[in-house]
Design a protein around this nucleic acid. Structure first.
Lengths: 149, 149
DNA sequence: TGACAAAAATTAGATATCTAACTATAATAG
DNA sequence: CTATTATAGTTAGATATCTAATTTTTGTCA
């Protein structure tokens, strides 16, 4: 055992992120990065969401999410509105132009999965997910234990 | 199968990087990030190396490596010298102070491995490495095929 | 040998991300 | 009811990274 799983995951992460940027640019979405894709992914599912929800879903901080949504708004893909119940809170929703990208994003997402899983059998793919979930759960548990001091 | 291995690896990568920064800071090395650790790791093995070698080993670009080495030099952990054979080329070497950190880095590295592998059996750890290597090899092959047009 | 391509490194400029601090509103407790 | 605390979001400032361009030196080939 080489104990190099962290390094291997880091490399895979780098390569997939870089590939995704290329695919997005090729789809006419240059300037859009994977994190923007995560924001849009939640909107494709829910129609609209608060900044708080988007940040949690994309695993980014709130300031980062502000910047991500700013960019998507400039590009005309989403629109901000005020919540009626809570004056602090805003709601982000897809525009028609944003909605029109649903298919492109689904295609890129499918292509990514196929790229990563293609060298694995069905059993191996399932095993990989199981092992990664184990590792991740354990890291999150350790983190929570430590932050609770 | 959820086809979420990429997302899982991204999360694990984020958490381990953040944890590493905390450990480095706790060891009195605040400002040092994991990439600096990669640079030092090669120097611990080889004693000295060119910028080119360091960049390849750390999987960073040359400009990034320049910045990393600048910082380590400011902190007094490494020293630059000119190569005798090739006037273009420099050689980066550990100082005594840099060398003195070998033990701390080894300890952190061991702690990281234990953190990640602890929820897995020996067989599972080996399986995870095997699957990650398969995925990574395939991605690198695909990338090379594409960049060769 | 002399021009041109390849290689080592740096500089310049851009960007995605973070933490910390701030503003404004809502909820809660005495 | 008022004072404190919590929550939603943005702004400000810092940093690690990248790509593109530049400089300097080496190697090659006609």
């Amino acid at each position: 055992m080489k104990h190099d799983a962290v390094m291997l995951m880091g490399r895979i992460h780098d390569l997939t992120q870089k590939w995704l940027r290329g695919e997005l640019a090729a789809a006419g979405l240059s300037g859009i990065v994977p994190s923007h894709g995560d924001v849009l992914a939640l909107l494709f599912m829910k129609g609209e969401a608060t900044m708080h929800e988007l940040a949690a879903f994309a695993h980014r901080t709130k300031p980062t999410t502000t910047v991500l949504v700013d960019k998507l708004e400039e590009m005309g893909l989403v629109r901000r509105a005020q919540s009626e119940d809570d004056a602090r809170s805003g709601v982000v929703a897809l525009t028609a132009e944003g909605e029109s990208l649903r298919g492109s994003f689904a295609a890129i997402s499918k292509k990514l999965a196929s790229r990563v899983y293609s060298p694995l059998s069905k059993d191996e793919g399932e095993m990989l997910e199981k092992l990664l979930n184990k590792v991740l759960s354990n890291l999150e548990a350790a983190k929570n234990a430590e932050s609770a001091k």
